[in-house]
Amino acid sequence: MAETGSEKIDDPERQPNDDLDATEVRDVEDRRASSSRIVHEVVRLQGEEELARPALALILSGTAAGLAMTLSLMCELFLRSHLPDTAWAPLVYFLGYPVGYLIVILGRMQLFTESTVTAVLPVATKPTGQNIGRLMRLWLCVIVGNLVGVTLVSALMAGEIIITHEQRLIALDLLGKLELQPWHRTLTLAIPAGFIMAAIAWVLPSAKGSEFWVIFTLTYVIALGGFAHVVTGSSQVTFLWLSGSISMAESWLAFTLPALLGNIIGGSGLFAVLAHGQMRSDTSGET
């Protein structure tokens, strides 16, 4: 028999034990408040705020995020320049990979892969033509801003304006060892990255002071797994393109476009739909 909302509240088996004091009961209730439905609503409201922002604000925030995301590439480069060429070296210089994400996510800048879950939940809740149009507008503004930001910094790096000649050579050596995958392989590698980024947006409302470690750990996994993130990966391929190592067509067709599609599939097609479906299932089970 399906439970009603009042039956769930009155069920003694779902209430804190009587031997807990008032402070412990409050702690239990605080932890129980972080249910899937509460998290879903927090993330949905974040998405509503993003969808309501003016286009110019989205583009500027996305550009700032793109500029900041190139710090992931630069920090990897700086760490790599002090390490020997050994099998364990990536475990160390990949520690620089989360830096850009930490700045962007904690700074509440617009990063495309975060919006694959936050901005999608309002649409999944109310799939109207207006909401779909708002989602497309947000995605376009944010991805354009992100790519403009990474291109600006990559150009400064390729021109040896913000890095030295030696650092540029190290970057070319480091990135030159990363062969461009066929587009379909890039797409499949981008799906887990999109899923992980959506998971970050989903977990953060419940992190309660552990936001740094959530972002750091999960983005470090992206680096270790060799997964394809459209923004950070574009900073790498754009640097190679502007340095003359690959063509513009290769950078877009072999990486940027398939990575974009894979991130959308992983973040929206998998995580957002599953998270929303879980919430709907929980709700229907109580009515």
Rank of each mutant, 00 (worst) to 15 (best):
C141K: 07
C141F: 10
V142S: 11
I143T: 15
I143N: 13
V144H: 14
G145D: 08
N146V: 03
G149N: 06
V150E: 01
V150K: 00
L152A: 15
S154G: 00
A158S: 13
A158R: 07
G159Q: 14
E160T: 15
I162G: 05
I162Y: 04
I162F: 05
I162Q: 07
T164A: 05
H165A: 14
E166F: 14
Q167M: 15
Q167Y: 15
R168W: 10
L169Y: 08
L169T: 13
L169P: 00
I170M: 13
I170P: 03
I170C: 09
A171G: 11
L172P: 02
D173L: 07
D173E: 14
L174D: 11
L175N: 09
K177M: 03
L178W: 06
L178Y: 07
L178E: 13
L178M: 08
E179N: 10
L180S: 09
L180T: 12
Q181W: 02
P182C: 03
W183S: 11
W183G: 05
W183A: 12
H184T: 05
T186V: 06
L187Q: 01
T188M: 14
T188Q: 10
A190Q: 00
A190M: 00
P192R: 11
I196H: 03
M197N: 06
A199T: 12
A199D: 07
I200A: 00
I200C: 01
I200W: 01
W202A: 01
W202D: 02
W202R: 06
V203I: 15
V203Q: 14
L204K: 03
L204D: 04
P205C: 05
A207V: 04
A207P: 08
G209C: 02
S210M: 12
F212T: 01
V214A: 12
L218N: 10
T219C: 12
Y220F: 07
Y220D: 02
V221C: 06
I222R: 00
I222G: 02
A223H: 04
L224G: 06
F227R: 05
A228S: 12
A228C: 08
A228M: 04
V230E: 02
V230N: 08
V230A: 11
V230H: 07
T232W: 02
T232V: 15
Q236Y: 10
T238D: 04
T238K: 06
F239Q: 09
F239C: 09
L240V: 03
L240A: 04
L242I: 13
L242H: 12
G244H: 08
S245M: 11
I246P: 07
S247C: 04
E250A: 02
S251G: 04
W252Y: 14
L253H: 12
A254G: 06
F255N: 07
T256A: 05
